[in-house]
Design a protein around this nucleic acid. Structure first.
Lengths: 242, 242
DNA sequence: GCCGATTTGTCCGTATGTATC
DNA sequence: CGATACATACGGACAAATCGG
């Protein structure tokens, strides 16, 4: 893709910033200057800039200009605001990765599962346990509940590959939104059975509720990460109304 | 504030959604309908909607409409996209909170500090250590480095109150952007000296680089939380270009 | 499968307000 | 004070996706 004008401008400006074209604290060219350079409308430039703000590259200041705040320290480790699978992360960072299915069964949401996941009581679910290996070392223990009616033909074999590739390419399902929560929990017996915890006795727990294009939550996943490989980054922008 | 039209529309629509006016999966009124209702332009409606998307209330679908995905179930979990602040946690759980300064000194960034914080070597800094108590129990160990030239008159006394209130109200500094990172680390001797860790041997570490309106990073803070009280939430939206 | 109506996505141009210098 | 720069808001045009007939 990247066929839209604002995406092209966003990409060009981002590259300039990352390549060090502007010092930290320096102002970028004004909107009017960029309008001339890219021969486009003001809205298009502004949209590109607003995405740079969202991604933490620049700040805007009314009456002053657009200010570079990018520091090449340790960027690009874990892009936030997007949904990225374990496999994508591994590929991007150039490491070996593997996924093993350790349990796969059908169940029905009882009170406990409903309270945990947010699925309604009685919903038919697949319960899927997986281990992710990074460089042959077990690193993430993954427990998912998946709506049967969204993927009736799911098998353990399919789940051992990329679940998202199957859902998107085979079923044509479009994943749009996900709600995430990060907590830190004591490692359970189950964790220690599968993950080599070393001297750590806690897990970084990423809880994920994923919605498809119909607006229905079809997946609940708890990813229990070994602390040493867990990192989460984002940028917070001050909003309009305080 | 909230004087802008798009903010008003955003607030009204959000209230309708939260009050259960639309079922989960149901479409909101079309943009044209909203234009008539609020007698405004299409862009204004679209901007309000895009903020609802950002906050995880709705999804948009070209050719179909705007779909409600808000579930009141997890409303109990508070503000989104933010880390529940220490004070908020205390208020929510109805507990006492307090802040103690345990160290306050001036220093200059050496290689180690520069590598840790991102400040240039040689920058004059305040080094501020604080403990947050919840119900008289120490819960968060807080280590901050602050640029002296941004707040030359800072004292330990001021730091024992709300640092941000001082910076914003007294110095007129506007905080715009902050880059955050969440990791999980082994508790250090320093941690255990100050925090009652119980059976946990890890800390939830929130690293924060805060920028003012000049685009200069004026604060680096490492907040080391007791795992039992740490929680982070946000929404991820699939972007345009893959 | 096609067509047309509806709906959101992108892009343009313009005007006015407000903060900074 | 004027010039510059970003923020908000309006209006219009066309593209792309969806849905019903």
């Amino acid at each position: 893709m990247a066929h839209q004008k604002y995406t092209q401008i966003y990409t060009i400006l981002k590259q300039r910033i990352e390549s060090g074209a502007y010092q930290v604290g320096q102002l970028l060219p004004s909107e009017n200057t960029l309008i001339v350079e890219f021969s486009c409308s003001r809205n298009t430039v502004r949209r590109a800039i607003s995405e740079l703000v969202r991604d933490g590259y620049v700040q805007t200041h009314q009456g002053r200009g657009v200010c570079n705040i990018f520091q090449p320290i340790e960027q690009a480790s874990y892009t936030m605001g997007t949904i990225e699978s374990f496999r994508e992360t591994a590929r991007r960072t150039g490491q070996n990765s593997g996924t093993r299915v350790i349990s796969f069964e059908r169940c029905r949401a009882d009170d406990a599962i409903a309270a945990l996941t947010g699925f309604a009581v009685g919903t038919e679910l697949f319960r899927l346990g997986r281990i992710h290996d990074l460089n042959q070392r077990p690193i993430i223990y993954n427990l998912s509940y998946l709506r049967v009616d969204c993927m009736p033909d799911l098998t353990a074999e399919i789940a051992s590959g990329s679940l998202y590739r199957y859902l998107e390419e085979e079923l044509g399902m479009v994943i749009v939104t996900s709600k995430r929560m990060i907590t830190v929990e004591r490692a359970t017996e189950q964790d220690e059975k599968w993950i080599d915890m070393g001297e750590y006795n806690c897990m970084a727990v990423l809880t994920n509720q994923v919605y498809n294009s119909q607006g229905v939550m079809f997946e609940y996943t708890q990813s229990r990460h070994h602390p040493s490989i867990f990192r989460f980054q984002d940028n917070a922008v001050r909003r309009a109304g305080e």
